[in-house]
Design a protein around this nucleic acid. Sequence first.
DNA 1: TTGTATGCGTTATCAG
DNA 2: CTGATAACGCATACAA
Lengths: 341, 341
Amino acid sequence: MEKHRSAPTLDDVAKMADVSTATVSRCLNSPDRVVEATRKRVLTAIETLGYTPNFAARVMAVKRSFTIGAIIPTMENAIFARGLQSFQEELHQRGYTLLVSSSAYKPEIEEEQIRTLIARGADGLLLIGHDRDPKIYDFLSQRKIPALVAWSYLPDSKLPSIGFDNRAAMFDLASHVIGLGHTQIGVISGLVDGNDRARLRVQGIRDAVSSSGLEAGNLTLVETSYEIENGAKAFRDLMNADPPPTAILCGNDVLAAGALRQAQEMGLDVPGHVSITGFDDIELARIVSPALTTVHVPHREMGRKAALQLVEMVENQTAGTGEQLSTRIVNRPSLGKPALG
Amino acid sequence: MEKHRSAPTLDDVAKMADVSTATVSRCLNSPDRVVEATRKRVLTAIETLGYTPNFAARVMAVKRSFTIGAIIPTMENAIFARGLQSFQEELHQRGYTLLVSSSAYKPEIEEEQIRTLIARGADGLLLIGHDRDPKIYDFLSQRKIPALVAWSYLPDSKLPSIGFDNRAAMFDLASHVIGLGHTQIGVISGLVDGNDRARLRVQGIRDAVSSSGLEAGNLTLVETSYEIENGAKAFRDLMNADPPPTAILCGNDVLAAGALRQAQEMGLDVPGHVSITGFDDIELARIVSPALTTVHVPHREMGRKAALQLVEMVENQTAGTGEQLSTRIVNRPSLGKPALG
DNA sequence: TTGTATGCGTTATCAG
DNA sequence: CTGATAACGCATACAA
C-alpha cells in the first residue's frame, strides 16, 4: 500500500534540519535574523523536501493575504483585459496576487463576488464604476476593506476612483462630430442601468447636442448590451429613422465594430454614407476597416496607478485620493464630414 | 477612540445565538442536523452580524479549498477568454472558484504560477498545452495535484487533455488551401518553442504540403510572437519572397488580422492578390473585412468539459481520461483561388 | 541566535 | 440534537 504523501510542512523541514519551526519560519521571512550555517542547513532541507509554505495557514497567522481581488463586468472582450494586465503586473511586483472574477454586468453577481473575495481574505478590492447598491459600500466600510474604483473618475464618490471623466470624454467626441457638420446623430449605448460609464457617456452626447444648438430631436438612441451582434442590430434600427443619422456614436468599440460590419453588409460606405465612432481604443478599433475614430483610454496607466494606489491604501491604512486620467480623441477614417444633403 | 471592527467569527455568532461554535458550523454545512428552532436563531445571528466564514480557516480545517487554478499564456487577447469563461461558469455551478493567472507565454513564469497556485491550496489545475519542463510533471504527481491540459489533445501525454488535434486541424486547412490551387504557401507561425500548439500547427502545414506533392521550397515560414503588429510585419517579410506566396496561413486569428491589415496598407487585395487564413475563430475573425477563413475551435465546449472533468478528478481521485474535440474549417472571404498566373 | 508556546477561525470526532 | 476539544500549518511574543 502506497503512502499518501501530502505537502511537506514547516515541521518536516524543521525536523530534517534539526531546528525548531520558528527558525525555519525566520529563514523564510527574515533571513538576516538567523545565522549563516543553520540557514544553509534549513534551505537545503526546504529544497530537498520541496517545501512550499501553506498559504491558508500563513493567512491565518498574519491576518493578511497579499491578495487583491478585482471584479470586472466581463472577460469576454478586451475592454478590461489590457488595464487588468498592467494592474496585475504592478501588483505582482509588489508581492501581491490578483484574483479576478467577472460579474457578467449583473449587480447581484458582483455583490456575491465581493463577498466571496472578502471571505477569501482579499486585502483590497478593485471595482469597475460607481453604480452599486449603497449597502455594499456600507459593508465595505464596516469591514474596513480598502476598495478602489476604476474606469470612471468621480470627485465625490463613496470610494476613491482612478479613471476618467466619461461624460466629458464623450462630450468632446460628440462636439467634434457635430463640429464636422453632422446634425442627425445616432447613439448606440450600452445598458445604462447600473453602469455609470454608459450613462455618463450618453449624458455627454446629450450635453454636446444641446450646447451646440441642435434640437434633442436630432438625436436618436438605442440602448443594448455590449455585444457585437447587438451593435449590428442597433445600427439597422437606427438607420431606419427618417431622416437617418449621418453619424453614429457608439458606447464602445465593440458596439462600433458591430455597427460597422452591419453597414458593410447593407452596402453603406463608412464614412461616406454614415460615420461611426467608438470608445476605449482597444485593438479592435485599429483592426476593422475603416479603422475607428474613438476615445483613447489610457488603460495601462490606469491599471498601474490603480495598483499603486490600492497597495498604498492596504499597507498604510490610508483612504486613497483617486486620480483623474485624461482621454483623447483618436481620429481615424470611420469619421468624416456628412455627405452634402 | 474608535474600536477596530474586524470580521465577525463563528464564535461571535455562537455567543449571540447562545450555542456552541460547532452548532453554528453545522447550520452552515449540514443544516438538517440541527433542529429548526436553534437553526433559526443561529441564522438570524449570522444575518445581523453579517458573518462570512473565513476562507483560510475553512481550508485549513477541511484541507480542501474548492479552488481551481488556471494558467493561461495571455489575457490580452480573446483567444483564451471565451473558453475560460465557460470553464469558470461551470466551476461556479459546482461550487468552485477559479483563480486565473497568465504566464505571458514564459515557461519560467508558468512554473512560478503553478507553485503559487498550489501553495494557495488549489484543488486542481488547468494548464494550456503540453510543452513544459518534465520536473513540473514530477512535482504535480508527487504532490498528487489533479491537473488537466486544454487547447491541445494528445492521446499519450503525462496529463490528460481536453482539446483538439492541432496538427490535423491545420493539415485539413492547408490541404484545403492547396486544393484550391495555391502552390506558394506562406506561414506566419507563433513561437514554437515551448508551445506545442504552434509547433503542431506548423507540422500540419508541412505534412499537407508534402502529401500533396508540393516541394518544401514552396513553403516560406516566419515565426513570431502572437501580436497583431507582428502579424503585419511578418506579412511584409513574406511578401518580399520571390515568388511571393499566394496564400498565407497564420497560426491564429490575431496574426491573421495583422497580416490582413498590412495587406490593405500595401494596397493588396485579399483574397484577389493573396489569401489569408487564421486559426481559432474568435470574434475578430468575423469582424475584419474580408472576414477570415479560419479553423473553428469549440472554446465553450472545451471549457465546459474541462471543468467537468477536472472536478471529477478532484472529487473522486480519478485519473481523468481526456477527450478529443473536433474542429472545423470555417470558410469566409479571406480565402479564394490563386490569381491566374 | 534559537526554541517554546500560543493564537488565528473552522471542521470533525467523540461524548453527552 | 448539541457541546467540548483536538487538529490544521504558520508566525510571533517571549524566554533562554
